[in-house]
Nucleic acid binder design. Structure first.
Lengths: 200, 200
DNA sequence: GAGAAAATATAGTGGTCGCTACAGAAAACT
DNA sequence: AGTTTTCTGTAGCGACCACTATATTTTCTC
């Protein structure tokens, strides 16, 4: 077996592509949840043996953390994508929910949001803490974004958005499709606008 | 050890109270999820050994089914409770969400809805199927209830309610408290009314 | 009280979990 | 080339998983 260069230039050279491995792990964790994916299966899927696995990632939770970061840095960061598209504050929020409706439905066995549901009911406190940290960062970003325009009601409005996203992720994992999710996203978007327009 | 009568008169006599055991198991499954609770722990907590466990419940999933049924038959059936309180259709729906806000926050390590989240990410397909069946029954009841008044939009409105409940359950499991959940429940209730009043 | 039936406890099944000790192979440095 | 360092494969660690075969105790029937 010949050593290949990693696609990410940093780090030690390994006989396998670390980025590709993280992507594969991300897909597996996303499809079935953190606990349900074993290290043996990850190793088999990634084509590496346990010692290489632990040399590269430290632990199963270490790989999960890298998978979470990769997930949040990509197209799954629907709030950042909606912000990039511009528009009013309410438009950005509604677009976030509409992007969720497009992203969350099951494709190739993967549904919902990895950050919101990937470690739900996990028995590993480390994995749970990693996901919780990222969830809090996400809702904090939304709250701060809302606070610029409605500081008094930012907490409540952000909670509403967060609950809608968590519900959409759960519903998608339960099998709800894009059209139904989009209808609900529009309802929630209208609700957000109306709550925003109402007197505080 | 003296044999005691079961509180439920049906079934074989056992040295332990089956109903009490189901209640204990319900609490454990609810607190940590189906997969994270082992048969050994259940046996220890229930004070029974594995053979008695399997004689009484057949399997871990069998006990989970009994726990689910017990859960859905009690105060956790917030939709039935809201219906019993009477009021307009929209009032019943809003009351359902308000009851969720009161029921879901963490108490004694238990949060959210057992049916919605107890088997989430479970590796056991039997447990997942049991929870899915009960979820579908619950949302079907809500849909039918809405359909009596708004048959054209019953599906979309029921999806909105279901997603709100799933989101509230997830948020409660993530630590959200009763006040914040209540605020969101009111928002969702107002949204439901407005969607109902809008032209279809 | 004797025999039959049922529920129990002891002990252990094979399997999987995350993880690692050890040794051999490959690569890097001098 | 020789030495050192780094990585990888083989094998297996102890712990836990859901579950059960066997034997003993308890309970019921007569």
């Amino acid at each position: 077996m010949v050593a290949t260069e990693n696609s990410g230039a940093r780090g030690r050279r390994r006989s396998f592509d670390v980025d590709e491995a993280v992507e594969t792990a991300m897909r597996l964790f996303h499809a079935r949840g953190y606990d349900a994916v074993g290290v043996a299966e990850l190793g088999a899927e990634l084509g590496i043996k346990p010692p290489s696995f632990y040399a590269a990632f430290g632990s199963k939770a270490g790989l999960f953390e890298r998978a979470l970061r990769r997930y949040a840095a990509g197209e799954a960061n629907i709030f950042a994508r909606a912000q990039a598209e511009g528009g009013s504050m309410a438009e950005v929020i509604e677009q976030t929910l509409l992007l969720a409706a497009r992203l969350y439905p099951k494709r190739d066995g993967v549904a919902g949001c990895l950050v919101l549901d990937g470690a739900r009911n996990s028995a590993d406190p480390e994995a749970a803490a990693l996901a919780e940290t990222m969830r809090k960062a996400g809702v904090a970003a939304i709250r701060d974004f809302i606070a610029a325009e409605a500081p008094d009601r930012a907490d409540a409005l952000a909670d509403f958005v967060a609950i809608t996203m968590k519900g959409m992720s759960a519903a998608a994992r339960d099998g709800m499709g894009e059209e139904a999710l989009t209808v609900v996203a529009r309802m929630a978007g209208r609700a957000f606008r109306r709550e925003l327009a109402a007197e505080g």
